[in-house]
Amino acid sequence: MAQIEMRDVSLSYFTPRQETEALRGISLSIDNGEFISIVGPSGCGKSTLLSLISGMLKPTSGRVLIDGREVAGTSPQVGYMLQHDHLFEWRDVLSNVLVGAQIRKMDRREADRKALALLERYGLGGFARHSPSQLSGGMRQRVALIRTLVTEPDILLLDEPFSALDYQTRLQLADEVHGIIKDQGKTAVLVTHDISEAITMADRVMVMSRRPSTISAVHDIRFGEGVIGSPWAKREAAPYRQYFSTIWKELQAHAGSAV
């Protein structure tokens, strides 16, 4: 059964000046453990889509379902990772990681134990008592991911989580985050404007059109038997170029109609 389902979802923003139709008639279905990437021209409402799944926004029409139940407000089942890490400078790394657990009023000792185990496992074991300003950009973003994981969501929503990083860190972190998410067996939805990132991390890539956005194409990403592994390795594999140029052309078509 599909874990995330959208049925004919539309969303409009209202301001005193105007009404903006952001999404129109979106239907999709994402299975348990799948990794989905969403690409599209900037301002096409990719992040809005994530906000709908997370329950922070309500659709103007249509239904958003998780495990067959309609989404009503934020739920512990869904974790959200933003473009910036937003670590709180007044808290050390460990207590930053525990922010979500504290908000959700999880058992303190249990959360502590889990947080320390995750920090240890993903190479931040020695940094629990450091302040965020002492960490590099990549480490900070990893801390942000762990903060989300501590609350044990089944679904991870990633809103351009690498775009604030320099190129090298970005490639490296994409590998690590992909590894962590697969390792934890989570369902993930990644919003990005980086086509390579979308192709190499996901099982499926959805392409969105310009506003009012719909999903204009869905690509199953298959690298054939034998080529499994890190996003980095996939960049070297043959099908990568093919996917890239196809998606590139689709996005160009959307951009072209904008001029």
Partner: peptide
């Protein structure tokens, strides 16, 4: 928004 995503 981060806080909201945790249901704060």
């Amino acid at each position: 928004k981060l806080m909201e995503s945790f249901g704060a």
